[in-house]
């Protein structure tokens, strides 16, 4: 199944890609919906079905680009969704990673400082990510609101520099994975390490998809508004 459509059911979605669990949760969609279709679920929860499909498909399929749907929903909807995702990272994912990393360090039977250095690297990554999120929430998203409401457009933010920042942030996650999988002496509790890595992989996937939504949906919409306003 490459593309989800409104006739699919929640089970199809999750069974096909369980990474979508937190995604539908951000829309307020719970489990336990029996055999209702996505269309029905969206109606009940007052969700724009095109938007819902654009998001889950972008998550599910790297090559998916919701060109047609793009114009059918407001950037404000996306912003609301992206903010929820940020909250999921800051309130759930990062604390979870930290707890596991802490447990991992405690389980280390050697007296080397390798994992301590890894933890410092993680905190470096985290501070960059938080800064990035803060910038989006304080600069980018308000700008979106302004643009949508057609108020004055101030060019204090360069839309085009946005994508580069994403690649900086995700190269660090990749480095973290590399360091742990390839180079750290395995003097720790393996099960904790695996759990940490699995969580990290899930987080990486989620955040890459999140960035793709920003790059592939939000940015093109902003550029479109900018173009229209310049005409």
């Amino acid at each position: 199944m490459d593309i989800f459509v409104k006739e699919h059911k929640v089970f199809d979605l999750i069974n096909n890609n369980y990474h979508l669990l937190p995604v539908i949760n951000r829309f307020g969609v719970n489990l336990g919906n029996k055999d209702k279709t996505l269309n029905e679920i969206c109606k009940i929860n007052d969700i724009n079905i095109d938007f819902f499909l654009a998001i889950v498909n972008t998550y599910n399929n790297k090559d998916y680009f919701p060109e047609k749907e793009l114009k059918s929903f407001s950037p404000l909807m996306i912003v609301k969704y992206l903010k929820k995702t940020h909250t999921y990272y800051t309130n759930y994912m990062l604390p979870k990673l930290e707890k596991l990393l802490h447990k991992l360090i405690e389980s280390d039977s050697s007296d080397s400082n390798q994992l301590i250095v890894i933890e410092q690297f993680y905190f470096k990554y985290k501070s960059e990510l938080l800064l990035h999120i803060k910038e989006e929430e304080e600069k980018v998203f308000p700008l979106v609101e302004k643009m949508v409401n057609n108020k004055t457009y101030d060019a204090g933010f360069n839309i085009h520099s946005y994508e580069k920042e994403h690649s900086d942030v995700d190269s660090k996650i990749n480095d973290l994975k590399n360091l742990i999988i390839k180079y750290i002496e395995p003097t720790y509790d393996e099960n904790i390490c695996y759990e940490f890595l699995v969580t990290l992989f899930r987080f990486e996937k989620d955040i890459n998809d999140h960035a793709r939504i920003e790059d592939n949906i939000l940015i093109p919409q902003l550029l479109e508004i900018e173009r229209a306003q310049n005409e």
């Binding site: 080397s112 390798q114 250095v117 890894i118 410092q120 690297f121 470096k124 990554y125 900086d168 190269s171 660090k172 990749n174 480095d175 973290l176 590399n178 360091l179 390839k182 180079y183 750290i184």
Partner: peptide
């Protein structure tokens, strides 16, 4: 060779080795 891109990642590698 290392699969590590960021400067801080390389630093970690240098420290642990």
């Amino acid at each position: 060779k290392l699969g590590i891109k960021s400067v801080s990642g390389l630093t970690v590698y240098a420290v642990i080795n």
